[in-house]
Design a protein around this nucleic acid. Structure first.
Length: 423
DNA sequence: CTGCATGATTTATA
DNA sequence: TATAAATCATGCAG
């Protein structure tokens, strides 16, 4: 065995030669100082090298021949010997695992975005498209479904790629394992080494997988940012949403601050989000206050509408259909007592109802109040926002306390405060 | 193209 | 933290 080792040592490539490139052994003569045993070993090696060039059957036959070669056990033990020495140095290279933090981050993000993990098909695919193309006029949901459709597209690609990688990985692993098992008959390969090789392969493939995850994450991020940008692009609310919001606004003109529950209700009815409701009321309050003349017609329409509705509802004895009114009754800053004779008229108008006074009556009073105001003074004060302003001002409710002059001054020019629309 | 309408965002304030 | 006020940026009718 020792002799064989020495012989083999003579076959080692020269120092400068990169060892892995010797698969196709040059058919040149053996080493110059070749001895008799060396010739045999060289032959064997050469045959091994040439095995790739052979046809499969031929290769099989040659392999068999090699296995039966008289020098084979000696060569095998030499290889075992060499291996024993090199395996130690290989051990040290082994452990290099901890790029897991990033992988975890990617995994978490993909999970959070719904790309990986269980599929939740609430309204992602064709169903959502059908719903939006049908009756639902909600622009928001159109964008929403668009976003979801794109996301599910990403998800699909991700999963198919992942599957492909996994399949390729397992195929390759199986292939390598078979190869190694096969080769273990001619050279010493322990099961542990096979396992190690498998791990290496898995490592390589998981690197690819991580790249896939990374690019998927990037795609999702881009999609998200685009979606958010698109959301920033203003889209007008549906008629339904505007209707619902205006109804609430004008029927709660004395205190147009919907509670959280009311906002949710409105959001649901209008098919928009709660924060959109908040935005809308913020905009509406400020714009209404700034130029009431502009809104008078609208106010009339909605006030009359809701007043009629509420009256009908109350007449039927059903009080539950109106959204809860914050500060209804005597609570809050709203003071009805200052609103003058029209309020008294309003009281007499509404007093025919025998139902208990509650939110509905409050809203009716708001609505009717507005109508009465318009009916009484319309011909003389049409378009003058100061009239309505006074009413709100007199109620001491939600007028701007910091700029009372523009509201209370009877000679104020409505155009002068209409600065909002000028930009 | 222009000007107004309008939803969203930003900033200040209580 | 909710709201007022200012501002931004787009939608849309004329």
């Amino acid at each position: 065995m020792e002799e064989a080792a020495r012989l083999l040592a003579g076959l080692q490539p020269p120092a400068g030669d990169p060892p892995p490139h010797r698969l196709q052994a040059p058919p040149g003569p053996p080493q110059p100082q070749a001895g008799p045993g060396l010739q045999d070993t060289g032959d064997i090696l050469q045959q091994i090298m040439a095995i790739t060039d052979q046809s499969l059957d031929e290769a099989q036959a040659r392999k068999h021949a090699l296995n039966c070669h008289r020098m084979k056990p000696a060569l095998f033990s030499v290889l075992c010997d060499i291996k024993e020495k090199t395996v130690l140095s290989i051990r040290g290279i082994q452990e290099e695992d901890p790029p897991d933090a990033q992988l975890m981050r990617l995994d978490n993000m993909l999970l959070a975005e719904g790309v990986s993990g269980p599929e939740k098909r609430g309204r992602g695919g064709p169903a959502a498209i059908a719903a939006t193309s049908g009756g639902c006029p909600n622009d928001n949901s159109i964008e929403h479904s668009d976003y979801r459709a794109k996301l599910s597209q990403i998800r699909q690609i991700y999963h198919s790629e992942l599957e492909k990688y996994e399949q390729a990985c397992s195929e390759f692993t199986t292939h390598v394992m078979n190869l190694l098992r096969e080769q273990s008959r001619t050279r010493p390969i322990s099961p542990k080494e096979i396992e190690r090789m498998v791990n290496i392969i898995h490592g390589k493939f998981s690197t690819i997988q991580m790249q896939l995850k990374q690019s998927t994450c990037e795609a999702v991020m881009i999609l998200r940012s685009r979606f958010l940008d698109a959301r920033r692009k203003r889209r007008n609310f549906s008629k339904q949403a505007t209707e619902v919001l205006n109804e609430y606004f004008y029927s709660h003109l004395s205190n147009p601050y919907p509670s959280e529950e009311a906002k949710e209700e409105l959001a649901k009815k209008g098919g928009i989000t709660v924060s959109q409701v908040s935005n809308w009321f913020g905009n509406k309050r400020i714009r209404y206050k700034k130029n009431m003349g502009k809104f008078q017609e609208e106010a009339n329409i909605y006030a009359a509408k809701t007043a009629v509705d509420a009256t009908n509802v109350v007449a039927q004895g059903n009080q539950a259909s109106s959204p809860p009114t914050p500060n209804s009754g005597s609570s809050g800053s709203f003071k009805m007592t200052n609103s003058g004779d029209s309020f008294i008229n309003l009281q007499s108008l509404t007093s025919y109802q025998n139902s208990p006074v509650g939110a509905n009556v409050q809203s009716q009073m708001d609505s009717l109040h507005h109508v009465i105001h318009q009916a009484g003074r319309y011909d003389s004060i049409v378009g003058n926002p100061l009239y309505s302003t006074q009413r709100i001002d007199a109620n001491g409710s939600w007028q701007d306390a910091t700029t009372p002059s523009s509201i209370t001054s009877p000679a104020g020019d409505p155009g002068s405060i209409n600065s909002d629309a000028s930009n």
